[in-house]
């Protein structure tokens, strides 16, 4: 049986697994961005807060994914959600914090102080400064962080198949359990391809969100 035959025969279950994978990663990223971008903006404004926040995010990031699951399951079991979607989504959200927070902070701090001083001096409100000046200028950097978080999340979501969260990792789980290499490879190739596609797609988004004024250089003289 070739890989193509396998894909043909299991196309339905592959699609379902892909859907589960995307749903898990998508929901986790949405929440992670909603939490991480404001946190990054918050620590960019007060440098004294940056140390502890980044340290905490870094510690979470350092804990291996399967170990994090192993630590979380007994805790979540107390509310009857030991395995499945919830621990997976929580782990993904936690892992995504470091790249999102760090990139948001770096991108916001890279804005020249004179630009913000001018905005204030011309009579923009703090809200207008953030929405019209800071955010557009920081957007490419923030998306770069989301991009790192996304590729990482796809990988962690694959491991989450072991705790019953479904997704493409299921093929690897079953393939290894039944020593059916074709199934393992199909899962691995699927996850690798998904990662590459998302990586490239978010790269395009990042380029689109880069203001034209930051892309053009020189000229005209």
């Amino acid at each position: 049986m070739s890989l193509l035959d396998f894909l043909h025969e299991y196309d339905q279950s592959l699609l379902i697994a892909l859907g589960e994978h995307l749903r898990l990663v998508g929901i986790a990223l949405l929440i992670a961005v909603a939490a991480g971008v404001p946190t990054g903006a918050w620590i960019a404004r007060g440098e004294h807060r940056a140390g502890p926040v980044l340290l905490a995010a870094n510690i979470i990031q350092t804990i291996p994914s399967i170990a994090l699951f192993g630590l979380m399951i007994p805790i979540l079991a107390m509310v009857n959600h030991g395995i499945g979607f919830l621990p997976a989504v929580i782990a993904l959200i936690l892992y995504a914090q470091l790249p999102v927070i760090r990139n948001t902070r770096v991108a916001l701090r890279a804005i020249p102080p004179a630009t913000l001083d001018a905005a204030r001096g011309l009579g923009m409100t703090e809200r207008q400064i953030f929405l019209r000046v800071a955010l557009p200028l920081a957007a490419p950097g923030i998306v770069a962080g989301i991009r790192i978080a996304a590729t990482m999340s796809i990988g962690v979501a694959a491991v989450a198949a072991y705790i019953g969260a479904g997704g493409l990792g299921i093929f690897i789980v079953r393939g290894i359990q039944t020593t059916w290499d074709m199934m393992t490879i199909a899962g691995a190739v699927g996850i690798a391809l998904l990662t590459l596609v998302v990586e490239i797609a978010l790269g395009i988004v990042q380029r689109m969100l880069t203001p034209k004024g930051l892309r053009v250089r020189g000229g005209g003289r």
Binding site: A114, T115, A118, A119, G121, L122, G123, P136, L137, G213
Partner: peptide, 15 residues
């Protein structure tokens, strides 16, 4: 908004 403001580093909005 009623006062003009110009500074050395100009601070034009790059975007």
């Amino acid at each position: 908004r009623r006062i003009g403001y110009a500074i050395q580093s100009v601070g034009l909005f790059p975007h």
